[in-house]
Design a binder for these strands. Sequence first.
DNA 1: AATGAATGAGTATTCATTCAT
DNA 2: GATGAATGAATACTCATTCAT
Lengths: 205, 205, 205, 205
Amino acid sequence: MSPKVSDAYKEERRQSILDVALRCFAEKGYGSTTVDDIAAGLGVSKGVVYLYFAGKEELYKQVMEERMQQSITGMKKRFRPEDGAENKLRQVFHAFRNQSLPELKRLLAFYLEFWLESSRREDLKAVMDRQSTYAEDFIASIVEEGIRSGEFRPDADPADFSALFWATRDGIALQFVGGGEDADYRKRMEAMERTLLGSLLQSGK
Amino acid sequence: MSPKVSDAYKEERRQSILDVALRCFAEKGYGSTTVDDIAAGLGVSKGVVYLYFAGKEELYKQVMEERMQQSITGMKKRFRPEDGAENKLRQVFHAFRNQSLPELKRLLAFYLEFWLESSRREDLKAVMDRQSTYAEDFIASIVEEGIRSGEFRPDADPADFSALFWATRDGIALQFVGGGEDADYRKRMEAMERTLLGSLLQSGK
Amino acid sequence: MSPKVSDAYKEERRQSILDVALRCFAEKGYGSTTVDDIAAGLGVSKGVVYLYFAGKEELYKQVMEERMQQSITGMKKRFRPEDGAENKLRQVFHAFRNQSLPELKRLLAFYLEFWLESSRREDLKAVMDRQSTYAEDFIASIVEEGIRSGEFRPDADPADFSALFWATRDGIALQFVGGGEDADYRKRMEAMERTLLGSLLQSGK
Amino acid sequence: MSPKVSDAYKEERRQSILDVALRCFAEKGYGSTTVDDIAAGLGVSKGVVYLYFAGKEELYKQVMEERMQQSITGMKKRFRPEDGAENKLRQVFHAFRNQSLPELKRLLAFYLEFWLESSRREDLKAVMDRQSTYAEDFIASIVEEGIRSGEFRPDADPADFSALFWATRDGIALQFVGGGEDADYRKRMEAMERTLLGSLLQSGK
DNA sequence: AATGAATGAGTATTCATTCAT
DNA sequence: GATGAATGAATACTCATTCAT
């Protein structure tokens, strides 16, 4: 009566499909990725993918939904209660800066393509918006915390800062998707950290 | 013995195919645009597209090659000899700021997708690189002119400035491809103009 | 009122189309030859071909009808009244043997393909049959003449000999369409001449 | 985990595709045979053909490679150890003579077209050459055996005989592709057997 | 649960033929 | 007469999805 395979096993498999799918979508693009590519990457048959996801598009959405939030959630978890807002922000910059460039390119290629596609298809748009909101809230809430604690300028606008933060990150990303050196990327991210963080810290103190 | 239709007619038709193709590629994406879509958009049969272009991919490349450079070439032509470098740069900002947002979105969606695709396919990469070089040279040469004439700081770096210029433009673009208000876009572009132009002008004056 | 172009001009053009068409059909095959190929070979536009022939298939048939018979007719014309039957047959062998191999290959490739196609399409079959009859009659009538004149064995069968003649020629042809040396071809044709002619000549004399 | 269908099933299906393909190619020609024709002949969808063969051309090559050799291989298998060389050769003639004419026509139409096409396309040429070599070796090796055993004239040339054998078979074939009576075909093949075999047997006996 | 054979809709491309100029 | 732009039917091939085993 009990299921032959445990829920844990199922979840594990589900995650591994998402992993492989992200990699495939990023490297070949959504249109050029076949369900067989993903199954082959997992070493299983096509049928398995359909056992866990309703279809290719559904899989695409869920990669965005889960994998993109995962990096943010990962950061959140690493925050300790005693970390201040500035410290948290620095951890965020640090995390972005120290991603390996190949992996970053993968994530960004996936992300940019999803963005593009979402501007064309309503159902993807909803996923994208949810994702954007989650990301914006993440940064905005740190800023709010910093304002409350007096670490950041009281006149800083959490929403504006957050928008600027992601716009800059995306802009830089764009430059490096096509190719670029690891060192250049880190330098660019440091400049971003200096500029953005500088605009938040109390100027007069 | 003479051709039935004039060269002017043929060129006109060629341009109209490029126009429709840009619109289709931007709205539906390269993969989802069928040659029939383009032909239908023109009100002709599929065969006509193949009469003017070797195939869908060739058409894709030529839209990039011609349409993207066209906006830059258009600006160049409008420059008068007596315009100074600052004036030219302001014209450039003005032109970007005053593009209609729908048309801008189209251009940018096309441009971003081409960028993404070019990171995956060698032949597109070559076109993309040519295009990037052309764009970077355009801005860099204005900056050089301004340095020579004393309008801009002598220590400004034309190549760096040009890279920053396009990165910022692309970053902003990215934000608006998904949607956004006309007014917000102009405000953002004005901020860009202030910041970037400010960094070029003689500080001691 | 008189035609702008003379009939002679028209016939000349018609023949030049047949020439180019034979060459194209032989080299690329019927299916792979486009009407544009033929027009380009002539240095005129596609339309001209349709001015002289009802369509590609019609042209195909007429190449067979006219060009294939032409080589036979050419031989006939070169016969002088005083030539005996044996002499005529030797001239025929001589003509076949001394064709340039490339040209021969062309003719045979065309001929074999037509044969093949004619086994599949009724309308070509009629043309092929007419052609075969013409060729068989040509050889058979020489044999008949030789029997009457006493040059050939009285018990020779003109029809059988003719059939054997063409079968052998075709069999050899088949071997060389795929490739082969000029010298080998001539040697093979000489063997054919010896064998076939030997079987006709009076044995007891 | 185990495959759903057995390897035997797959091989059977593969063979049935080759069968139908041979029939289609022979009856309609390569160019006029559509993949849908073949699928329809099997009562399955187009996709199945692509499941077993990489494409139409690949299928074409494999029909030649497998089906043509099959008839030869079939004969080889029927040889018993105690059969002498003459006996083997007689079995070969017998097998050719007793093929049903419709089936023979099919095989030959396919074979001739492939030959023709191979003179125009390099990749087919390689297949054709392999096939020719296999066929020539088959006959030549019987002749060699006969020479060794003293059944055949010691001065017979295996390679020459083999070439002549196939040339004659092809020549006769050519005559019957277009049409012809069953009885005439057998008579012709008998004449071929007498002539060729006669030239091999010890003359002094 | 897993497999992978089968389906068939969807698409780029070619080319014979027509016909306005 | 000649041109060549336009048409559109035809066809190879791909791949998401289904489902019998």
